[in-house]
Design a protein around this nucleic acid. Sequence first.
DNA 1: TTGACAACTCTACATTTGTCGAATATATTT
DNA 2: AAATATATTCGACAAATGTAGAGTTGTCAA
Lengths: 129, 129
Amino acid sequence: MTNNIEMEKTEMTEAEWAIMEVVWDNAPCAAGTVQEALTESKGWAYSTVKTTMDRMVKKGLLRIEKIRNLQLFSPCISQKQARTGEFRKMLTRAFNGAMTPMMQFLLDNEKLSKSEIVALKKLVEDKLK
Amino acid sequence: MTNNIEMEKTEMTEAEWAIMEVVWDNAPCAAGTVQEALTESKGWAYSTVKTTMDRMVKKGLLRIEKIRNLQLFSPCISQKQARTGEFRKMLTRAFNGAMTPMMQFLLDNEKLSKSEIVALKKLVEDKLK
DNA sequence: TTGACAACTCTACATTTGTCGAATATATTT
DNA sequence: AAATATATTCGACAAATGTAGAGTTGTCAA
């Protein structure tokens, strides 16, 4: 294992991420709520959203609590966990897990703006205090 | 589009990454070479590797040049392009594309070692010169 | 020439993911 | 209660992915 507690499978597809974000913001929430929130950006049918969410429950990404006839979904993993997972996957895959080379790559290739670099400098300095 | 030239689809599955790495190191190379290189870590049959590589050709990730009866594969995207793609996907998904918040998150949560932070500080300072 | 191989082609099949519609069950409103 | 609006359940089906065996063909050494 690479690190600490938070270690469930956090792999998500693009569709699942989209749903997850809505759930993070609205949980506990119904499938219909999610479907509505994504109407503009995705235009998915209710059943598309519901099917995907049900599959996410099976995978342990979401959980359902039933209130009378209503199913309310909540996340099983936090946004922070998901971010960590996403970041580490990228780091492992693309940089063989090596943080410094990854940073080097970023600075060299991703054309950060001056202000982004200055902000980063500040973050780093604070960290060293 | 988020940035500059290099903008083909670089999305790859885990299996495709594994293959791609071997190809980057050995191109132009035959499917058998890749299969052998991955024997230990993956244990895939020749046909598994070959099928996947053929699909990668169709997707534009690899290209074949035929020398008499031999097919030699080469990458259509560079490692750098793939790294960029992978990084940006992560940034978009998990941090809404915002670089500084992502850095903040890293510093706050990924427990970098002191030496990694120092190294980063140096990288940043050099960048500002 | 005859094997012994190596490489390639084809086909196949199970899972996972993307997407839904139809039928059914509930709840809410006249 | 009847009609209407909501949710839920159940398939379904196509495309993408993981995985590989069987058969064909070309190659090289004995």
